[in-house]
Design a protein around this nucleic acid. Sequence first.
RNA 1: CGGAGUGUGGUGUAACGGUAGCAUAAAUGCUUUGGGAGCAUUCAGUCCGGGUUCAAAUCCCGGCACUCCGACCA
Length: 414
Amino acid sequence: MRQSHLFTGTRREAPKDEVAKNASLLIRAGFIDKLHAGVYSYLSLGLIVFKKIENIIREEVNKVGGQEILMPSLHPKENWLKTGRWDSMTDLYKVADSSGRENALAPTHEETVVPLVKSFVQSYKDLPLSVYQFQNKFRMELRAKSGILRAREFVMKDMYSFHTDENDMHNFYETMADVYRKIFDRVGIGHITYKTYASGGSFSKFSHEFQMVTDAGEDTIYICDECSIAINDEIIEVQKVCPVCGKDKFRKEKAIEVGNIFELKNKFTEPFDFKFKDSDGKDKIIQMGCYGIGLGRVMGAVVEASSDSLGIIWPDSIAPFKLHLIDLSGKKGGEEAKKKAEEIYTKLTEKGVSVLYDDRNSTAGEKFSDSDLIGIPKRIIVSQRGLEEGRLEIKDRKTGEVKMITEKELFEMF
RNA sequence: CGGAGUGUGGUGUAACGGUAGCAUAAAUGCUUUGGGAGCAUUCAGUCCGGGUUCAAAUCCCGGCACUCCGACCA
């Protein structure tokens, strides 16, 4: 993509009302824009990152049999009355149409997915089954904060699994814990993300959250470095030793919940009377699990975890582009460099390498600053100076390491 | 929802109750290109509604918005 075509520019300064590092950097670099408190647009660059995170999640949950669907966000009130959450859920957005009929703007989708799956599933032969979607969620947070870490409208991957019995549900739950491990590894925060034991497990003693260590986090976790797991603030009082190794050495850290897995059991299948015919001919209630990951929150968490004073440092796996190609030719005597930059851009693009090409007529300093801010992993600089030695400069955003390479070497690398 | 704070060009800031200024961005022209260049010209602003006053960005009241702390967060 040509940078001159990007409708979003960069900003020297973050808006004064944005203190969270994630939102501050993402806004300055032109990835997102704030509409109002806790509600953000994802712009050209931001959406590329967003979609990369989405695809990683999609790939991993597809591997364990997840079937992608898309459910609506506008839900009939009746479904929510059935589960009791129309009245009990304080952060539920309720909207009325002109005739006064009320609807819920979905904060989660159990009320929709259960009747949906019920209409297709009658037999134990249809189970187990899991469906998921990437869909907007609306939650009337009393206080939106921390940039995109706590939004009032956000996209979540929510997955729901349906089982004949608790044991099967629990096995799948454990499978999903592994899936989450892989997802967080792939998006680049695996090394600081801990499977965290929390209260309220229906099958086993615990439920689990995935918590990424960051000062921007809202939760406090206690990490057992021996086992690379953590336990949650709520249960440290009763659970004084590590549930895995039994030791009582913990490191206290602030963290943000980037994913969760729940054993819902029959909590939602019961209100909808969702039963199946088992092999013994009897009707039995379906057991259910659910698994969520907030995409924007993951994106914000990555920024919290990976930046420096100059800007964002994207992990390779979700960087908006592989390469940032910078044309540093001046007008005087720079025609050759300009031509070379164009040529390299065309070749890389034809080769299918994703590259952001800074073809703007700006000064070197501005291009470098923008490049640091945007945070693409590798920077290629085409300048008259380099070309005189027949070389291009390649710089690593993370390490700052600079190498002079030939054009041939560049095409061998990418 | 309780507490605190802040609302000034697109963005960041200044102005004792007395001419709304600066920087940056944007536009035009020329020049310039290895860490946010230079000159000239231009465009653009006091959150909304009341009140006090000869005079309000400034003081008062109400509203709205945003931020922070807390509460809340399947």
